[in-house]
Nucleic acid binder design. Sequence first.
DNA 1: TATTAATTATTAATATGTTAATAAAATTGC
DNA 2: GCAATTTTATTAACATATTAATAATTAATA
Lengths: 150, 150
Amino acid sequence: MLSLNASLPMILNRALDGVMPAYRQLFAQYDLTEQQWRILRALWEVEDLRAAELAEQTLLPKPSLVGILDRLEARGLVERRRSNKDRRAVSIASTAKGRTLAKEVLPQAQAIHDFIRAVLPEEDWDALEHALNTLADRMKATTFAEIAAE
Amino acid sequence: MLSLNASLPMILNRALDGVMPAYRQLFAQYDLTEQQWRILRALWEVEDLRAAELAEQTLLPKPSLVGILDRLEARGLVERRRSNKDRRAVSIASTAKGRTLAKEVLPQAQAIHDFIRAVLPEEDWDALEHALNTLADRMKATTFAEIAAE
DNA sequence: TATTAATTATTAATATGTTAATAAAATTGC
DNA sequence: GCAATTTTATTAACATATTAATAATTAATA
């Protein structure tokens, strides 16, 4: 029978547990959480994004986005503007201060990324990326009901 | 330059986002969260585990463990006992009720696992597992300071 | 066009993650 | 054998995740 630590979620979480501390130590130096960084990073070179787009690109749940943006806005790192064409929508943009911060953090995040990439040969990364992406795609189109019905 | 969605954390999180909903739908039918299930699963065929061991096997942070165990204990699914040899330590065991529940959920979790495994060929899984495990191992022995010093 | 349905962001309630601090018990070194 | 250190679990404070519900607005349709 399947053992707990061999399940895919556990394998993925173990990998994240291995990798994230390095990033967190970097972000902590700038009083940023991982999620806050994702948002700054996503707004790095785009004019602005609507909340739904931002949630999708950062993989952050929309309800979480609200509080995270509140805190970033309070620090003057991002700006929320009500859209005029669709007054339900909110567009989020980085401030100059936010871009300055991103500019400082980016190369260090890149350094961590490069370090990680060097741990495995290129072809391993290609295989891993391909496997995980196709997996995510297939699963997105699948529900538990379909699995149970097999 | 590195794009946000190509970073390893994002790739891993996307994969998790693809896979977890299927599991969550199953667990929700039994009023269990993912983390609560991990604990029941870990105690499925062991007599008991100390809190530190349980945290390690489930990948749950020790502070989170406290509340999760509180709720499981309140439902009569697990039991906390103070160790006599070391009165600091607490040993956690599944109750009969907990094992009955695990017995019912396990085959369905296994079905999801099997479904996922079928999405990719065996050799892809071997490669993926190998890559992620060695990566986690290497990173566990690495700190941000060492990376930044390069 | 008035009504209904769908969409967008938000709020609410509860559970968990992250980091630092603490209390109690056990170990260690002197 | 005692003071200092270490270990084990827990608490505290804050940030985020998950799911369901809601308010405001827009789109659809009869």
